[in-house]
Nucleic acid binder design. Structure first.
Lengths: 354, 354
DNA sequence: CTGAAAGCGCTTACAG
DNA sequence: CTGAAAGCGCTTACAG
């Protein structure tokens, strides 16, 4: 790489001062059209690009957003949760649309993340993404607020939380899914996923589940709940636990699609058919949900919209405008995994008709 | 945000010069242990972080890698190809492991990407990722080389290509999949995907396909090939085209999993069963491949390994070491979609045994 | 509309 | 081992 062209080189070539080059290239109205054109063409021939480091240093900003992706360290580390992958895609798009670069960082190990990015001027603001134990994050969030760091986080939207949170209406989503299972005739509906306030999104889904049960005059039975983080394996194990417990159930509501898919595998291995013996629903609507067999009934979180809102609210903060937490609607997607009674298999019908 | 602490503040607090602060914090051996400790604790109490912009400006480097993701503008723009999403995950991890930040950028629209990142000192090197028309990229790659830009690209590894390419052995993969279909008794195997050198990865897969056919004494029939880019929709349409043409085939090899999955839908809609009537294979092994029904036989590209190698070779270039193109092995994953003859359905057996 | 000059916060020869 | 000083390449008051 031979010496990169600087604004002085352009100035020299165009026969103006370096200040004028800078102004022209930044689109200042203080430069005459003709001068601007001359400078522009000089810049083009020298293949000049403004040095971001210098520009940012001087302007004290960065033009980039940092996406911090928290993954539960216990998760299988080869795969990122597909839901977050979708979010990542939409956040990337939304950032680009608003002229920001996006820096991505996984935060499984580092503990000092709360200051790493904005403190070191790598990013103007932070997007926090990830399921995970909220309690252990909370004090860091408060520190972030105290420091004046601009950030938005994806998660449960509840009163009294530090900073700006964007999330979907987990309570309504949990309620919707459970109501649907009840309408399908299910009476013993299991909930797979952590149901404590440690994981507020799951907790809200659980609360929605419990509300739907009570509204239908059904009992919330603790035997029907088993903890699980968002992995297929955890879903598998939670379903196994239920089965070993001897719990009787005619439906399973997984707190996430990954959990539901894991449960599906456990049920199949025991010879239980879905939806024939057990109706099944998940949460997230990851791409896989519509492809598995049977296709998975789930609560859709609109990741496209989510990315837009996250970026929008963060950019507002950076611009000094007020930003607000927002709750996005949850939408029930009914697919085959919950549709009962299952149409009678053709061969059984034939046998009976003999 | 109250005035951020600078190295001068630390110097003042620790009672040393600013230069010493800088040295201590960068781990220079020129600083005594005791001084270093004093400086470190001052930095901690003031919550000091080195300003990356200033540091990078001075050191003339950035510590970040840019991942440019090219997507075919005709693709459904709401979804990123899951294969690239996997790559993105593994590249992110590999970069973090080597201490680089990763800047992500989608390049559907911008045309000036070849200089945007390294020229403006946003990144030390580029990772180019995306299927796409190679011919139209080629001159940009050459410009990149001419400029001395460090980059690696994911794609076909062929002689005479500009720069460093990492890719999987697409020829071997295509051949493997086709051989497997032939072993399953298929004789009329369709190929869905562009088969021209414009898309070198697909072309290599096609060449592997053709080689396997010839080796088995089978004819390569143009009627059995239909173009498709990497989307489910394109796969669906290509299969439709084949069907409308009245082409007779007993197997379909999709140049990517997405194409194969689209073809599966088209076949099902026509009442053709997979693998009963038509055996099916794809390429990539995206997560969905193992979840659809029937599960999809495919050629696995190891994205974890790919990300590591891409980052490794790029970092070597940045460090002034020589980097080399590399071809990663392709691995056949046999699943249900290609296993013929299909076990006889239970009810048919019953009927016959009456 | 344009130019000369200061300064963003570091890193690193240079001198001791 | 430490300090004083130059300079990375910009942006932006300040002066005209």
């Amino acid at each position: 790489m031979k010496g990169k062209a600087t604004s002085f080189d352009i100035a020299h070539l165009a026969g103006v001062s370096q200040s004028t080059v800078s102004r022209a290239l930044r689109g200042s109205p203080l430069v005459s059209e003709e001068t601007r054109r001359r400078i522009q063409s000089a810049a083009d021939t020298l293949n000049y690009k403004v040095d971001k480091n210098a520009s940012n240093l001087r302007r004290q900003h960065t033009g980039t957003l940092a996406l911090l992706l928290f993954e539960d360290p216990t998760a299988d580390d080869s795969h990122i949760n597909p839901f977050f992958l979708s979010m990542l895609g939409s956040i990337t798009r939304a950032s680009a649309q608003r002229g920001y670069d996006l820096l991505i960082s996984f935060q499984q190990f580092s503990r000092d993340w709360h200051a790493d990015f904005t403190g070191s001027q790598k990013a103007d603001g932070l997007i926090l993404l990830g399921y995970g134990d909220y309690q252990s994050h909370r004090d860091k969030l408060e520190k972030l607020v105290a420091q004046g760091t601009r950030f938005v986080r994806w998660g449960a939207v509840l009163p009294g939380q530090p900073g700006v949170s964007i999330g979907c209406d987990n309570f309504a989503g949990g309620r919707l899914a459970t109501q649907h299972l009840i309408e399908q005739g299910c009476r013993r509906i299991a909930f797979l996923g952590d149901a404590t306030p440690h994981y507020p999104e799951f907790h809200e889904r659980y609360r929605g589940y419990a509300a739907a049960l009570r509204e239908a005059g059904l009992r919330v039975d603790e035997v029907l709940q088993a903890d699980a983080e968002t992995t297929e394996r955890a879903g598998y194990e939670a379903a196994e636990l239920l089965l070993e417990r001897g719990a009787e159930f005619d439906a399973v509501f997984g707190a996430s699609d990954l959990i539901a898919i894991g449960a599906l595998r456990a049920l199949s291995e025991r010879g239980l058919s879905v939806p024939g013996d057990v109706a099944l629903a998940g949460f997230d609507d990851i791409p896989m949900a519509s492809f598995i067999n049977p296709s998975l009934t789930t609560v859709r979180q609109d990741t496209g919209k989510a990315g837009e809102v996250l970026v929008e609210q963060l950019v507002r903060q950076i611009g000094g405008e007020g930003a607000e937490s927002a709750m996005l609607p949850a939408q029930l997607k009914v697919r085959r995994s919950s549709l009962r009674p299952e149409p009678e298999p053709a061969f059984r019908k034939m046998l009976r008709n003999q």
